[in-house]
C-alpha cells in the first residue's frame, strides 16, 4: 500500500469516527450526559439499517430517512424517561455524572441483551455500493467514500446551525453555563433533551454508514463508544469541528497501524493516542487551557 492509499483509506475511516463522535460531543457537551450506551445505539442503528435495506425499493441511503428520525425519537424518549429524572434529582454536576454513567452502563446491557435475543451473536453484513471509485490514483469503495462525504456534510451543517442560528446559540449557552442560561429565558431541560436526541440521531447516521461497509455484531458497541469518547476528548468536549478533525486523525492513525504494523493492534494504537492526549493536553487538542 502506498502512502496516498493509506491516507485516503484513513480519511474515509476517520469520516465515520468523526460522524459518530460529533453526536457524542453534543450529548456530553450540551446535555451533560456521559452516555456509555452510545456504541450500542450505533450498533442498534446498524441492525435497523440491515432490516430496512432488505425492504423492497429501499437502499441504505434512502434508509437513512427512516433510521435517523428513528434515532432522534429513541434518544428523546431515553432522555425524557431515563435521564431527565436524574438531572432533576442531582444536586451538582459531579453527582449527575456518576448517575448518568451508571444508568447508561445499565442501558448498555439492556440494549445488548435485546440485540442478542433478536439477532444472535453472529457477524452480520450486507453489500451495498461495493464498487471501486478512483480518486487521486487510488481506488476506494464507493460506500466508504459516502461515509466521508456524509460526515463532512453533517458536521458542517451542525456547525452552521450551532454558530449561525439563534436556536444554536441558545444550545451553546446551555453548554457554557446551564444556570445562567435559565436566567435569560432558555429552557435548559428542553435544550438538553433536543441535544441528546440529536446526538442519538447522529449515532443512527453513523450506524447506518458503518453497516454499509463493515461487519457488525451485537456485542461490538463497547469499541465504538471507546473510540467516540477518545475522539471527543481529543477534539475538546462540545467542540464539533474539533471532533471532526480528531476523528479524521484517529482514522489515519488506525489505518497506518493496521497497514504497517498489525491489524490486531488498532485498539492499542487508539489507547496510545488517548494516553498521549491525557498526559499532554487533557483539555483537548483544540481546547483552551482552563486554570
Amino acid at each position: 500500500m502506498t502512502l496516498t492509499t493509506t491516507l485516503i483509506a484513513g480519511l474515509v475511516l476517520g469520516g465515520t469516527y468523526a460522524l459518530v463522535a460529533m453526536g457524542l460531543t453534543l450529548q456530553y457537551g450540551i446535555a451533560r450526559i456521559m452516555n456509555l450506551a452510545y456504541g450500542d445505539m450505533i450498533i442498534t442503528a446498524a441492525f435497523a439499517a440491515f432490516i430496512v435495506q432488505a425492504l423492497p425499493s429501499i437502499n441504505p441511503l434512502t434508509g437513512l430517512a427512516i433510521v435517523v428520525p428513528g434515532g432522534f425519537v429513541f434518544g428523546y424518549l431515553v432522555y425524557v424517561f431515563l435521564l431527565s429524572p436524574l438531572v432533576k434529582r442531582a444536586p451538582n454536576q459531579a453527582a449527575l455524572e456518576v448517575d448518568s454513567i451508571l444508568t447508561t452502563f445499565g442501558l448498555l446491557f439492556v440494549i445488548q441483551g435485546v440485540l442478542l435475543v433478536l439477532f444472535g451473536s453472529n457477524y452480520t453484513s450486507y453489500t451495498f455500493l461495493n464498487v471501486p471509485v478512483s480518486i487521486f490514483g487510488t481506488t476506494v469503495a464507493a460506500n466508504r467514500l459516502i461515509a466521508l462525504v456524509l460526515a463532512l456534510a453533517i458536521g458542517l451543517l451542525f456547525y452552521a446551525l450551532l454558530t449561525r442560528t439563534r436556536w444554536g446559540t441558545a444550545l451553546r449557552a446551555v453548554a457554557v453555563s446551564p444556570q445562567s442560561a435559565q436566567l435569560v429565558g432558555i429552557n435548559t431541560d428542553r435544550a438538553a433533551a433536543i441535544a441528546f436526541a440529536m446526538g442519538t440521531a447522529l449515532a443512527a447516521a453513523g450506524g447506518t454508514v458503518i453497516s454499509m461497509y463493515q461487519t457488525f455484531t451485537a456485542t461490538g458497541g463497547v469499541v465504538f463508544t471507546m473510540k467516540a469518547l477518545i475522539v471527543v476528548i481529543m477534539g475538546g468536549v462540545g467542540n464539533l469541528l474539533g471532533a471532526l478533525t480528531a476523528g479524521l486523525v484517529l482514522g489515519i492513525v488506525e489505518t497506518a497501524v493496521s497497514t504497517y504494523v498489525d491489524p490486531g493492534l488498532t485498539l492499542a494504537a487508539t489507547y496510545t493516542i488517548f494516553l498521549v492526549v491525557l498526559l499532554w493536553r487533557p483539555e483537548g487538542l483544540f481546547g483552551r487551557r482552563v486554570r
Binding site: 456521559m34 456509555l36 459531579a94 455524572e97 456518576v98 454513567i101 463497547v222 469499541v223 463508544t225 471507546m226 469518547l229 477518545i230 476528548i233 498489525d262 490486531g264 493492534l265 485498539l267 492499542a268 489507547y271 488517548f274 491525557l278 487533557p282
Partner: peptide
Amino acid sequence: GVYFVIFTFGLAELIRQIVTWYEVN
C-alpha cells in the same frame, strides 16, 4: 473523574485484544 471512567471502560477490551494478538502472533 470522567477521564478515569472512560479509561477503565475500554481497558478490559484493550487487554483482551493485546493478549489475543500476543497468543496468535
